[in-house]
Every structure is written in structure tokens, then in C-alpha cells.
């Protein structure tokens, strides 16, 4: 996953390649064309009400947040073209059996997982996701529970507040702590350390 920085569209200053403009309401949609924005993060509800505007602006990268069980797959299908990249963040609680096949057209699915039960479900369907040629990412699971390379947070610095027991964990900087999982702080992972080390003076695309 390439590095992207989510910034509220209203407070957007530099519109460089790494910026993902976040829309929080329908009123902000005209800012897309005003600021010539090519990458957005948008709620499916807002997309529904601004579909025509977004379609005609040739957005190259759309992160779609699913926030309702009654989501409209046709809408997502219609916004997809060969000239854009569609990534959806799907809460595991909205998953149903045939969804993996119905979502074959999207470029990336990030499964938002909040409980052990949801994690077990994810583990059960992981092989089917892969057969559908989609690399499975997870969100909201601590990195000591699942492999860090599968965590959305590894690629976006999206860490949250953690308990004291996490302080000595190697993943502290990027991990998303979730109290619903029993954590086991990890002290050594040299491949992860190499990943988070930044090289100076170069453009970071990952």
C-alpha cells in the first residue's frame, strides 16, 4: 500500500501526490474541482449524494468508507473505471457470505475488525479473498495479533492511544491498540524495524 496522508479537504494546503482529501459532508464536494483534487476519502453516503460530481471529476483514487449495512454495491461498481483505484474500508460486521465475490471489481478491501469473533471470521474467509485476487488488509487489530504487513496501519502511521503495557512493544509507533484483543507486546522484529526506518532526502512513496 502506498503512503497517503488523510487531510480534511477544508484544511488542505499542499495538494501533493501523498494527500488523500477527506470529505466530511456533502457541502465539501465542490472543493474537489476547486482544488483539482485527484485522491479522496469519502463516506458511501456522501458519494451517493454527489455521485455525478465525483464521476465527472475523474478522481484517480477513491477510499470508500462503508458505514451502513444497506450499502449500494451498484453505486461502487458504477464509480469504478479502468482509470481509477477503488479501495473500500469494510467493517466486518457488514460482511455476508457472497460479498467477496460481489466485490471482485474493487482494487483493495480493508476489513475493519473489532472483535475476536470478527477476526475468526476474517481468518476463515482470507483464502477466498485471495482466490478473488484481492490482497487482504485488516484495520483496528493490534500488530501483535496479526502479521504487521497485513495491517492497514503499517502503511499510514495511524496509531492510537495505548496502555502502558504496550510501551516496550516494537510496534508501538504504528500499531492500533484495541482493548477487545489480548495483547502480547513484541520486543524484536528486525524486518519491521527496517520498514519504519526512513531514508533521508528521498521521496517516500511507500
Amino acid at each position: 500500500m502506498l503512503y497517503k496522508k488523510e487531510v480534511d479537504i477544508k484544511s488542505l494546503k499542499n495538494n501533493d501526490k501523498t494527500v488523500l482529501a477527506k470529505l466530511n459532508s456533502i457541502d465539501e464536494v465542490p472543493l474537489i474541482s476547486q482544488n483539482k483534487i485527484r485522491k479522496i476519502s469519502i463516506d458511501l453516503k456522501i458519494l451517493k449524494n454527489s455521485y455525478e460530481h465525483i464521476k465527472k471529476n475523474n478522481i484517480k483514487y477513491i477510499r470508500l468508507l462503508i458505514n451502513n449495512k444497506e450499502y449500494d454495491l451498484e453505486l461502487i461498481k458504477n464509480i469504478k473505471s479502468k482509470n481509477n483505484f477503488i479501495e473500500i474500508i469494510l467493517p466486518m460486521k457488514y460482511y455476508y457470505e457472497s460479498l467477496i465475490y460481489e466485490l471482485k471489481f474493487v482494487d483493495r478491501i480493508i476489513f475493519e475488525i473489532d472483535t475476536e469473533k470478527e477476526l475468526n471470521l476474517f481468518k476463515n474467509i482470507e483464502k477466498d479473498i485471495i482466490l478473488n485476487e484481492i490482497f487482504p488488509y485488516t484495520k483496528n487489530i493490534p500488530m501483535c495479533i496479526i502479521k504487521p504487513e497485513q495491517c492497514f496501519e503499517l502503511f499510514c502511521n495511524n496509531s492510537n492511544k495505548k496502555p502502558k503495557s504496550c510501551e516496550k512493544c516494537i510496534y508501538y509507533q504504528r500499531c492500533h491498540y484495541n482493548k477487545n484483543f489480548e495483547i502480547q507486546p513484541i520486543k524484536k522484529d528486525k524486518d519491521y524495524e527496517r520498514f519504519i526506518n526512513k531514508d533521508e532526502d528521498i521521496i517516500h512513496r511507500i
Binding site: 500500500m1 481509477n84 483505484f85 482494487d107 483493495r108 485471495i130
Partner: peptide, 21 residues
């Protein structure tokens, strides 16, 4: 082989993403 196939998917997705970066 599972990890190798996952790597291939990672590469394919990154390339689609780079096309639209």
C-alpha cells in the same frame, strides 16, 4: 506457496495503485 501468492497479489495491487498515484 500461500505467502508467495500473497506477495504476487501485493505486487499487482501496488502496480494498479502506482498507475493512479
Amino acid at each position: 506457496v500461500y505467502e508467495l501468492y500473497k506477495t504476487k497479489l501485493f505486487i499487482d495491487t501496488i502496480n494498479k495503485e502506482l498507475k493512479n498515484y
